[in-house]
């Protein structure tokens, strides 16, 4: 069953973009932020397809083409570790190991309390402070183990 409240919110987003088909990517980005779980449910794809009059398969194609979208529920905060070469040569692998140790999960997984998801990202343009990670919209750089523990504490406290 589709939650009517969510359906209403999806339609509002579509209206905000004047029902333009060209705004599909923008619509999907906004829809993904509707819940704390940072994902787009298959049911919602149906609503978007119908409302924008775009075939379901086309919407699904776009949804799975771009790496920022997820069809599976994720944590409230997505910790994205930069996997690009400038961070790599500044030992981002060690950053990965520290996050995995501190959170007790592996890359790609979500903590049991559904607070954090660990995943890789492509370059976030923070090469001057590499190794860098992005949490939500915030970027953290020049990471050390102490700094990472502090960051996690800060988010847990929220």
């Amino acid at each position: 069953m589709v939650n009517q409240e969510i359906k209403q919110k999806i339609i509002e987003i579509i209206e905000k973009y004047k029902r333009e088909k060209e705004k599909l990517v923008m619509v999907l980005l906004d829809v993904q932020k509707l819940t704390e779980f940072n994902y787009i449910d298959r049911e919602w794809v149906n609503i978007i397809a119908e409302e924008l009059d775009i075939p379901y398969t086309k919407v699904y194609d776009v949804l799975t083409f771009y790496s920022m979208f997820s069809t599976k529920p994720r944590g409230k905060y997505i910790i994205e570790i930069c996997k690009s070469a400038p961070c790599h040569v500044n030992k981002s692998k060690e950053v990965v190991a520290i996050f995995e140790e501190v959170l007790g999960i592996k890359m790609g997984e979500t903590t049991e309390d559904k607070i954090f998801t660990l995943q890789y990202t492509s370059c976030i343009g923070a090469c001057d402070i590499s190794p860098a990670v992005k949490i939500g919209e915030k970027v953290y750089g020049n990471l050390t183990k102490e700094k990472i523990i502090e960051i996690i504490k800060e988010y847990r406290g929220v």
């Binding site: 060209e22 599909l24 990517v25 980005l29 790496s67 920022m68 990202t121 492509s122």
Partner: peptide
């Protein structure tokens, strides 16, 4: 929305069309 190939100008236009 996270796709390196969109930097290529025709892919960029495709993406701009949603």
């Amino acid at each position: 929305a996270g796709a390196y190939v969109c930097g290529e100008n025709s892919a960029l236009v495709e993406s701009s069309e949603g």
